[in-house]
Design a protein around this nucleic acid. Structure first.
Lengths: 220, 220
DNA sequence: CAGGTCATGTGAGAGTCTTTTACATGACAT
DNA sequence: ATGTCATGTAAAAGACTCTCACATGACCTG
């Protein structure tokens, strides 16, 4: 695919290129996908968009800002994916919650370039408020889901929803970061990352009285 | 501190600089500490070691190999730290296990430069067998600890030790990566990363019958 | 339609980094 | 003393980041 005109799906807004920012974001994403987050350069992205190496600086202050734009897109898609997985808590909060965890992994596997742009690169989030907002929105899905899930438990023994959300987020991220990439580089596992995460979340939630059945039933 | 001679604490082994590889590793580590993993350059490390920018290439094939040497040092220290925390399973396996988790966080907080070199940079581990070996040794501590810990449970219901180790590793890494840095950039938490991780591991282990008490006792 | 204005893109260039190559030199063995 | 090799230097090619002066096309205004 080339990005010569009307790259982002919007109507051609005119001017020379048509939609250079989108074209650059697309090129940067492709570069990250091909060569890893370190393989991305402004010059190469410009080359792929068919413009001079100075053109990108009309739209992005520097390389980091272009990378931040890629990460922003990633967090937006990520939030949508989590929300769809949660699906309003259907069929039941427990299953929906597990689906959210799986969606986390699926995103890391299916969109490794976005995932890398979002988390591998060390972007200073506070310098890009939209990025911070988008990552907050993605986390809010998890948080709301935890709220719904913990509501099952009577108040006296109810665990704090935020804590549950943070634990699940941490476990999901840990599994995704350590074992989630498809590379042959990483460690061999006795089970798939998905199974590992599902078992982990299940065990965790059982302890809080949020999941039925016994932990040992899930092992073998 | 300057690295002009006998940088690594060993006796001067002669030649021009004395111990350039160590000096470069130290300079690289300092650079990462000051400016983040992206702020490191071979040229600047050479400058700080007081040699020309070509000198490093006598000892490291390229920039990545120097970075890998830093990461190797990091994993070695990391393994030692985890082993000390485990302390042979004393005072009891449960407490010792939690200490290992805390040691993970402590390392991420106290040695952010090493931690970044080890995990933030996308080094291809398989290209540096010693690096892979060192990271394996560090993980082995966790794995052995899980082995000892799960041995408490009678065989029929005993959870697989490797799975337990992976879950704890993932949770520890998730907490460290998402919330463990001291930066003001990251999200505000209702509890410290240490407390968050300790609670998470406790809840998880309780579900497996590896920790006494009720989960809700630890919350508040 | 003419003219002005601004956003967008270009070409050239300064400065830095990576990595290679030919060359220099000091440590050490004999 | 002398030769050898590891270690370091200077110089340079090539790439990248980012800036600046300049070009140009889109659009507005009359």
């Amino acid at each position: 695919m080339t990005w010569s005109h009307s790259g982002g799906g919007h109507e051609r807004r005119g001017y020379h290129h048509g939609n250079l920012p989108e074209a650059l974001i697309g090129a940067a994403l492709a570069l990250i996908a091909e060569k890893g987050p370190a393989g991305f350069t402004v010059a190469e992205a410009a080359r792929r968009a068919g413009v001079s190496s100075a053109a990108p600086y009309r739209h992005f202050r520097d390389a980091e800002e272009l990378l931040a734009a890629v990460a922003l897109r990633g967090f937006e898609r990520f939030g949508v994916a989590l929300e769809q997985a949660w699906n309003g808590g259907h069929p039941d909060p427990m299953r929906a919650f597990e689906n959210v965890g799986r969606a986390y992994l699926a995103f890391a596997r299916d969109e490794p370039a976005f995932f890398a742009a979002m988390l591998d690169t060390q972007i200073a989030f506070e310098k890009y408020p939209p990025l911070l907002a988008a990552s907050d929105r993605a986390f809010a899905v998890l948080r709301d889901a935890a709220e719904r899930l913990t509501a099952i438990v009577p108040k006296p023994t109810r665990p704090p929803a935020l804590m549950v959300a943070l634990h699940v987020w941490a476990m999901s991220h840990g599994v995704a970061a350590l074992f989630g990439r498809a590379d042959p580089s990483r460690r061999k596992l006795p089970m798939s990352p998905e199974e590992l995460l599902e078992a982990g979340i299940l065990i965790y939630l059982q302890s809080l009285g949020l999941a039925g059945g016994s932990a040992s039933a899930k092992q073998g």
